[in-house]
Amino acid sequence: MWTIHLAGGPRKVNHASIEWKNKIISFGGYCSNEQPHRDIDVYCLDTDTYRWSALNTKHQIEGRSLPCQRFGHTVIRYNNKAVLWGGRNEAEACSTLYTFDLENITWNEPTTHGYTPSGRDGHTATLIDDTMYIFGGFDSDEDEYSTDIWTLHIPSMTWRTLVTGGAPPAGRDFHSATAYGHCVYFFGGRIENRGLQPGFGDDDYDNTIYVFDSKKFLWYKPLVDNCSVSPIGRRSHSAFLYKDQIFILGGFNSILDRHFNDLWAFCLKTNRWHEMNCCGEPISMRRRHTTCIVQNRAITFGGTSPIGGEIWNRLVDLDDLIVLDFAPSLLTLCLLRVKNFPLEVLDSLPKTIRYQLHCITVPNRISRDAPWTG
């Protein structure tokens, strides 16, 4: 059930977000009217009150610089630390690894071992046990979409590239990757359909599920139920795991020139797709947003959205958050029912209930005016 829509949060596109202790921590991303050459910003959403705050971060070592502002990067959570890698700004892609102490709000640039992957953006990062898996993205050194799997063993901070079996997917960027057990499930992304000259092809898409088995170092495609209808290939969507299903939300297909706001579920027990039809007001069509699972809620925020429906020529950077609640409580249902009651009725409610209504109805106040892009 779609429950809460709140504007006024950080206006972010191609950011990265993680969940930690019932909070969502968002790193970087861009907004069309911001200065790109500055330190990365970090925002925190309290998912009990739906209030955003900017974190005043510093480097663990005095005098060291913070990571630069970037987009198309990845962040995973490992215990009480966030691990940030990759992404780019207007100048270049980055290959430096950073960690962020979520307790002390401090950055660190740990020493790593082994060969480091070249800088890229639009890749994915997933965590299985103590290892982070990097796949895809646009490799700035090779000037192409990567097909390699890189791993970082976090306790030893050791990089390695894997020699894999099976048939890997074509190189791509802005796909999704979801860890489930010892496997990673990949969907979507932008694939280059090369023309006569390398680097001058058109975008291509597919809607195939690819799986990487981290124990066997093996790629394979699961046998998907042919009777199920599957989502259109896309990029810049979000993906999240809830129970035994991978959910795909939104995205963009440049061949169709179409943004999406649909929600699809891939059941990992039956290998079957189905489109979700949830009650409540769904999200607007968008791409380059993030979604995090907090308990039974999928919380989506940011991204960029077309203006003008199917025929659009402008995009607007978004500052809203939307909640999809898989198991809304009786209290949540009651709050949604009474939030539009006349003011004299609301004033008669207990103070705690009025505060909870305030949290789910009053916008945040930290976003800038909406910038338009072409």
Rank of each mutant, 00 (worst) to 15 (best):
H15F: 12
W20H: 12
K21N: 11
I25Q: 03
S26T: 09
C31P: 08
C31I: 04
C31N: 08
E34H: 08
Q35N: 07
Q35C: 05
P36Y: 05
P36W: 07
I40A: 03
D41S: 10
D41R: 15
V42P: 01
V42M: 04
Y43G: 02
C44G: 01
L45E: 08
D46W: 14
T49F: 15
Y50C: 05
A54E: 15
L55T: 04
N56P: 02
N56V: 10
T57P: 03
H59V: 00
H59N: 14
Q60T: 06
Q60P: 05
Q60L: 14
I61E: 11
E62V: 13
R64M: 12
S65N: 13
S65I: 09
L66I: 01
C68I: 09
Q69G: 10
R70P: 02
F71W: 11
G72W: 11
G72A: 07
H73N: 08
T74S: 14
V75T: 11
I76H: 04
R77V: 02
N80T: 07
K81D: 04
K81I: 10
A82D: 01
V83N: 03
V83K: 00
G86H: 02
G87L: 04
R88M: 09
E90F: 12
E90Y: 10
E92S: 14
A93L: 10
A93M: 12
C94K: 15
S95R: 15
Y98C: 15
